[in-house]
Nucleic acid binder design. Structure first.
Lengths: 300, 300
DNA sequence: CAATTGTTTTTAATAATTGTATGCAACCTG
DNA sequence: CAGGTTGCATACAATTATTAAAAACAATTG
């Protein structure tokens, strides 16, 4: 079989559902109507009708579509569960790369990975092609793919790019009107930062998630499809690397909380330049953390 | 044939070249050595040897590889020229979309387009997948692709994103040391702007190219793979739309030259804030031009 | 003549095929 | 018998062929 007949199978089962609402001897509606009802093309409807005829459920000749008997449980066609979505695939892939610390230059085996992630090889191919725009993977000279991965250069350029995007977001944010929903959100975040700082000795590992939410909140004020696309990748990369570097985690996180609070305070005061300066400081620290995390990790 | 045997054909011809350096009766080196010499795998070498045997050029049995006669011109296998590269494909595609003003929502027929651009359908698929990261195309619910295209929203977000990237570049540029190659480059551009302004009545349509070079020069100081990737698209979009809007072209271009010169002057003076302000003004104008060009174009 | 069905064409997803690469074990040969 | 060489087997990705699905068009029926 060239392509899966999953669509046909689902339509067939849906048709059985519909037949159960009828009585033996009833006429089924027109092909077009059924197609609309099942949300498939007429071609599929006709295949379904033919199969129903073969199963002895239906007498079908021209416009005559008489139900011969009510469908039973055994009439249903088995249908396998549908594959995961593109977004899930992306998360899975980045998760795999970052969690297992796949080294740069690793050849990526499309067939094997497709099996591992439970998607068609074709879909994975497509996904890798789209990832190549972020420079995370690239085609090898004579076929196949290879992970470019998180080299030092990549990390630096990603951090720099993040800085550009986020400073812009901070700038925008400072100019937003008082009734914008971001302000209560920031106030809530500020309280959470204070709460975490107070219990830093026991809860310092909770910071990673708070950091993610803080940056997501700031990024959310810029409605731009290009920015959004990048932030997905940036968030994941920083999230994982933050968790890698266990050295001085408590101190680092306490310092970062302070940096966050400086940004929030400046923003609340509508002091744009102070907010931008505070954000720049924080992002510089963050970049250094990322780089040192890469260094330490390379030694393992 | 499942995949092209271009690699085999090239190796075969290269092997003929090599055989011409030998005399009749000579022994050929080991498979592995030939593989290294021809830069292909041993499998290909063995196929080549087999074919040479079939052509009566070689007696091959085990490690006995005796050249029976010198190759002639007629022995060569024809090889077709290789298809265009990914970058060429990108230019072709954007060129097609922008030049023919393909409307948003147009379904993209992979087979047909592959024929038109002279690439394998597979390659085009991959290219579309990578373009989907820029939101220029997207997958349709049940298979196939569709052009999202340059809607008003897209143009606005693209312009905003361009502004973020370019203001950052201007900021960086202002801080570069005196011996950086950008400064003579800027000086040359300044002179060209003055020259064009002096002859604006006859040469006003030359501005589009100068504009492109001006922005490319500014963008070149930021070495960042993510920025570079986007600038390719941005450049093309603005380049074409600039040429669309014929209304008041002379005046618009003259004004833009002035805006460019303001940026250059501020940069030369190392006055960062003035340079950023001038660039912001120019990019705002540019955004308006893009939007009005879309409006006018939609009426055609 | 409007609704419905029959037929054909087109398109995209996937299975199957084939070219290419590579690892391993057997084999020769000095 | 050790080093190199070959034969064989396997793995993988690019492409072709096939098939499911959709859509367009023509014919038919009430």
């Amino acid at each position: 079989m060239a392509r899966t007949d999953e669509r046909f199978r689902e339509a067939y089962n849906a048709m059985l559902d519909y037949c159960e609402t009828l009585a033996t001897g009833d006429q089924l509606p027109a092909e077009h109507g059924l197609a609309g009802h099942l949300n498939v093309s007429r071609t599929v409807v006709r295949s379904v009708l033919e199969r129903l005829g073969g199963a002895g459920l239906l007498h079908w000749q021209g416009r005559n579509k008489t139900l011969l008997r009510r469908p039973e449980a055994g009439d249903r066609l088995p249908v396998q569960s549908d594959p995961i979505s593109a977004d899930e695939l992306e998360r899975h892939f980045l998760d795999w790369v970052l969690r297992f610390d796949v080294p740069p230059g690793t050849p990526l085996n499309v067939t094997e990975m497709a099996r591992k992630f439970g998607v068609a090889p074709h879909s994975l191919q497509e996904f890798l092609a789209s990832l190549s725009r972020f420079g995370l993977v690239r085609r090898r000279p004579r076929g196949g793919w290879e992970l470019v991965g998180f080299t030092r250069d990549y990390a630096i350029e990603l951090s720099d790019f993040r800085m550009v995007l986020e400073l812009n977001a901070v700038s925008h944010l400072a100019a937003l009107p008082t009734d914008h929903p971001i302000w209560p959100q920031l106030a809530a975040l500020e309280a959470e930062h204070h709460a975490l700082a107070a219990e830093i000795d026991t809860r310092y590992h909770d910071f990673s998630l708070l950091d993610e939410r803080f940056h997501a909140a700031i990024g959310s004020v810029v409605r731009n499809r290009f920015v959004t696309e990048f932030q997905k990748v940036i968030t994941l990369v920083f999230h994982y690397h933050y968790q890698w570097d266990k050295k001085d985690e408590r101190e680092r996180n306490l310092a970062a909380i302070d940096e966050h609070l400086r940004v929030i305070t400046a923003l609340t005061d509508r002091n744009e330049s102070a907010a931008v300066a505070a954000a720049r400081d924080h992002l510089r620290t963050s970049k250094q953390t990322l780089l040192s995390s890469l260094r330490n990790h390379a030694l393992v």
